[in-house]
């Protein structure tokens, strides 16, 4: 019951964030000086025909009073109708639907890989010999600070051009996705591992860890059974921020590896000022953020019973 109440509260908060994003976009479109129909099309250079302008005006209801427009706008969004991209001559929802699969594969592959690598690295190196943690720290700092596109290029150079293990660019077959996933996952794994190790080192000093050892627990059981759970709490907070940023990082990676996906659609929509498409993608990014945060918040409750209180 308490869990359900917490979930309901988090969902309501998420819905509010989505509504706020939609409203900000609405205000932005309507406050831009000039003809809002031209704004929707991108810029006057789009040279719209009067027929197109009339179509947009009737679709967005620019002739109606503002509150009616706003109401209709929200209603359309609720029905999943994000309008039409006039450049690509297709409904936004359809365009996103076409590309989302490729990006989702990339992101859903990167998240467990990043988490897994971070867990293994941090749990096995926390509070070990200084030289060992020193080396791993160095590698992690390097990985975390390299820009994504350089890491992608380096991986391409090594595994594709020299070793010929993976194709350099393609969206076909499972081998083509490995390097992009690595490019996306490694920097995140490095950052998470650093946070997790620092937390673990602090937790492993706690008296309850000594108590666990005095019961005859093995070192790995102490790390996995007692310390990890505590160290996960702050790590998840960072993970939430990093995972929510994956969509925008996918843009870079998809460009470097010349892959299909939302990334390409996103960068195209932004450079072409394709407002309906930007609106659709912005709402999608917000949705991803909201969902990631809800999942993280629910995970806190599972890890730490004190959170709900």
């Amino acid at each position: 019951m308490k869990h359900l109440k917490y979930l309901a509260w988090r969902l309501a908060a998420g819905a509010f964030v989505l509504w706020a994003t939609a409203t900000i976009i609405f205000v932005a479109i309507n406050l831009t000086p000039g003809d809002p129909a031209i704004t929707v099309l991108g810029s006057p250079e789009a040279l719209p025909t009067p027929a197109v302008l009339a179509l947009i005006r009737s679709e967005y209801g620019f002739n109606e009073p503002m509150h009616t427009q706003y109401f209709h706008y929200l209603l359309r969004l609720l029905h999943g109708n994000f309008g039409e991209s006039y450049r690509l001559h297709a409904p936004v929802a359809h365009l996103i639907g076409q590309q989302i699969g490729a990006s989702a594969k990339l992101i859903l592959g990167a998240i467990p890989l990043a988490l897994g690598v971070a867990l293994v690295l941090a749990v096995s190196t926390a509070k070990r010999a200084r030289w060992l943690t020193g080396w791993f720290d160095f590698i992690e700092v390097t990985l975390a600070s390299i820009p994504d596109f350089i890491l992608g290029l380096l991986l391409l150079l090594a595994f594709s051009f020299s070793l010929h293990l993976f194709p350099s660019s393609s969206t076909q077959g499972w081998t083509s996705i490995i390097l992009p996933i690595l490019t996306l996952a490694l920097p995140i794994a490095a950052r998470l591992s650093q946070v997790l190790r620092r937390e673990l080192e602090e937790i492993l000093e706690q008296p309850f860890i000594v108590t666990a050892r005095t019961r005859g627990l093995s070192d790995s059981a102490v790390r996995l059974g007692h310390a990890l759970r505590h160290a996960l709490i702050p790590t998840l907070t960072i993970a939430g921020v990093l995972f929510a940023g994956l969509l925008s990082q996918a843009v870079v990676v998809e460009t470097v590896f010349n892959r299909q996906g939302l990334g390409r659609l996103m960068s195209d929509s932004a450079t072409n000022r394709d407002v309906p498409l930007v609106l659709g993608i912005a709402l999608l990014a917000t949705l991803v953020n909201v969902v990631v945060n809800i999942i993280i918040d629910l995970t806190y409750v599972i890890i730490d019973p004190r959170v709900e209180k």
């Binding site: 008296p207 309850f208 000594v210 108590t211 005095t214 019961r215 505590h230 730490d304 019973p305 004190r306």
Partner: peptide, 15 residues
């Protein structure tokens, strides 16, 4: 051999 540490709040896993 059983071992009891000083501070019971800190010596029991809070989670």
């Amino acid at each position: 051999i059983g071992f009891v540490l000083q501070d019971a709040l800190g010596s029991l896993d809070p989670l």
